[in-house]
Amino acid sequence: MDVRYLNPVIAATDSVFQTMLAVKPEKQNVSVGTELVTNKEVNVIIGMIGDIKGSIVFSFSREMALAVVEAMSGMEMQKIDKFVTSAMGELGNIISGKATTGLAELDLSCDIAPPQIVTGKEINISSEAEKILMVTFKTKFGDFDVSFSIK
């Protein structure tokens, strides 16, 4: 798997956070693994089919998910409820949609599936992926991970 496939995903994440939330996410380390285990509680999984088969997973801490939805709605959010997970799911959907446009520029034609949400502690997302590329971003709302797993 080619690391440059990750670039459109990083660019889309950056652009959507800037236009929607006026926040520039700072890219931290990139790591490569074979398993996706996260202690972040709000996970948005976007399945991908086409020239790339796999998924993009956005993992947000509880605090970050609440802070992002508070920033969008202007209302206080106290718990991870369906409103919060659905708002974050759509955010993942928008970023992934934009990422497919970037992948198309690399001559990769891909479609995405509607977001699936997994919440809880110590989550292991099985993906049958050969390789998982993970990048961590830092924002004023907290840190989050974007993992791109390709079968």
Binding site: V16, T19, M20, V69, M72, S73, D81, K82, F83, V84, T85, S86, A87, M88, G89, E90, L91, I94
Partner: peptide, 21 residues
């Protein structure tokens, strides 16, 4: 109630993206 919460969360993000992007 779950259906209602889910739909309104979706509307929130959708509208911001539609207007902002």
């Amino acid at each position: 109630e779950d259906l209602l919460m889910e739909f309104s969360g979706y509307l929130l993000t959708w509208l911001i993206n539609h207007v902002a992007a």
